[in-house]
């Protein structure tokens, strides 16, 4: 069964790169360009993994994360937080909000792919 990945990111070029990487792994992707879109996509797309940017317009990545963790129906959703800010304060906030993994921008693509696979329980190619 194909794993579904929701890409919640507002920077067009980053979206393009993430889409390429996920598709290359054989995942199905959908793009949400702001917090509201991301939450809206959860119900009908039912993603297994969310690549979540912290600085999303509308509702922030942290808010989206808390929303997911607050919905019992979304228990299986894994969250990989991407942040451009850096710093440990951001990471701890993200962990508190309930993310499964955390990655600073700019990231190494291999690292990202490896972590995404790990979260989804798919073996490395």
């Amino acid at each position: 069964m194909t794993k579904r990945v929701l890409i919640a990111e507002d920077e067009e070029s980053i979206v393009a790169s993430l889409q390429f990487l996920m598709r290359q792994c054989g995942f199905e992707t959908r793009v949400a360009r702001n917090g509201y879109e991301a939450i809206a996509s959860l119900a009908d797309f039912r993603p297994d993994l969310v690549l979540l940017d912290v600085m999303l317009p509308g509702r922030s990545g942290l808010e989206v994360c808390r929303f997911i963790r607050g919905e019992s129906g979304l228990g299986g959703v894994r969250i990989l937080m991407l942040t451009a800010k850096g710093g440990s304060a951001d990471e701890s906030k993200s962990r508190e909000a309930g993310v499964d993994d955390y990655l600073s921008k700019p990231f190494a693509t291999r690292e990202l792919v490896a972590r995404a696979r790990a979260l989804l329980g798919v073996a490395c190619r």
């Binding site: 920077e11 990487l21 600085m55 451009a84 990231f107």
Partner: peptide, 21 residues
């Protein structure tokens, strides 16, 4: 920092993609 990292992220990602593929 945020504004600098954002374009850098894309540049690095695409560079690696092109390099690996």
């Amino acid at each position: 920092t945020h504004e600098l990292r954002t374009p850098l992220t894309s540049i690095r990602a695409f560079s690696e993609i092109l390099h690996d593929n």
